[in-house]
Amino acid sequence: MPTSGRGRPEVGNPWNNRPPRPPGAQDRRRPPRAQDERPAREQASRDDRIASAARSELRLYGLNAVHAVFSRRPEAIRKVYLTESRIPALKPLLAWCVKQRVGYRVVEEGDLDRLAASTHHEGVVADVLKVEPLLMGDWLRALPEGKPVAALWLDGVGNPHNFGAILRSAAHFGVAGILLPRESTLAISGAAARVAEGGAEQVPLVRMGQADNAAAQLRNAGFSLAATVVRGGDDLFAAKLPPRLVYVMGAEGEGMDARLAEACDLRLSIPGSGAVESLNVAAATAVFLAQWKQRL
């Protein structure tokens, strides 16, 4: 019986039972087949597709938020989950899903709690494609000429519920766009869209470049920039507001950047009783927009 290098017999090794190869002959044993690696490649491909979908899709919840997407861009809907009690309210959407072969599932309340990571889903959750922010130049070119326009520049606003409330007010008062600084991570989320009650589909997000360049672009387009400050600004209710106006709203707590405030054309404050320091950014935005609308 053949032996190994250590002097012990090798058992069950068919190669050792073959006749010796002639000098110079090649070993014709085949390497492991490429298909042995296929499961790993297929899993990596699936992981890539899942990651890509996660980047391009948004999970919305709330009846008005889902209705708004269905009304404005139904082709963005990828999957719908709902409770049985919501079927009557969502019949047109479900009929569209059947016609377009978009999946939907009737699930329990607890399932929606987990899908939305919230109990405020109002009986419906939907996976939809995200909308990327517009570029500043594209947004400016699309604005109507000769008409009053208001926009909001959000400097550091981060709370999704405040953002949702701002979007709701912006939609109500016909704001033309929400301007986001280049470094801002603010984006539409499920929570923001629910609080916006459909407003997230009405007001475009606009990605700016450097702050000084963005301000110059806005002024060239006829806009004035108004810093909204807690104190030290002109009385909002007495000030003359230009027809093309960008309100610059500061972050919750810290307020807006002092250098940005100094670079604005106007400084405006909301007078109050003094019983509280100020309104939060969402409530203040509604007051500023209402005053602009009233002055048109």
Rank of each mutant, 00 (worst) to 15 (best):
residue 5 G to D: 07
residue 7 G to F: 04
residue 12 G to S: 04
residue 16 N to H: 04
residue 16 N to I: 03
residue 16 N to P: 00
residue 17 N to T: 09
residue 20 P to C: 00
residue 22 P to E: 07
residue 23 P to L: 00
residue 28 R to Y: 02
residue 29 R to L: 06
residue 34 A to W: 07
residue 46 R to S: 03
residue 48 D to W: 08
residue 49 R to D: 10
residue 52 S to V: 02
residue 57 E to A: 09
residue 62 G to I: 01
residue 65 A to L: 03
residue 76 A to R: 11
residue 78 R to N: 14
residue 96 W to C: 09
residue 97 C to E: 14
residue 99 K to E: 15
residue 104 Y to P: 09
residue 105 R to W: 14
residue 112 L to N: 04
residue 114 R to E: 11
residue 119 T to M: 10
residue 122 E to F: 00
residue 129 L to H: 13
residue 134 L to K: 05
residue 134 L to R: 09
residue 141 R to D: 12
residue 159 N to S: 02
residue 161 H to S: 07
residue 166 I to F: 04
residue 167 L to F: 02
residue 170 A to L: 05
residue 175 V to P: 05
residue 175 V to T: 01
residue 177 G to E: 02
residue 179 L to M: 06
residue 184 S to A: 09
residue 186 L to A: 05
residue 187 A to H: 09
residue 187 A to E: 13
residue 193 A to S: 14
residue 196 A to W: 13
residue 205 L to D: 04
residue 217 Q to T: 04
residue 219 R to C: 10
residue 220 N to F: 04
residue 222 G to W: 10
residue 223 F to Q: 04
residue 224 S to N: 05
residue 230 V to D: 02
residue 233 G to L: 00
residue 235 D to M: 00
residue 239 A to Y: 08
residue 242 P to K: 05
residue 248 V to Q: 04
residue 253 G to I: 02
residue 255 G to H: 13
residue 262 E to Q: 15
residue 266 L to Q: 12
residue 268 L to W: 09
residue 270 I to F: 01
residue 273 S to R: 08
residue 284 A to P: 07
residue 286 A to P: 06
residue 287 V to C: 07
residue 287 V to G: 09
residue 291 Q to C: 12
residue 296 L to S: 09
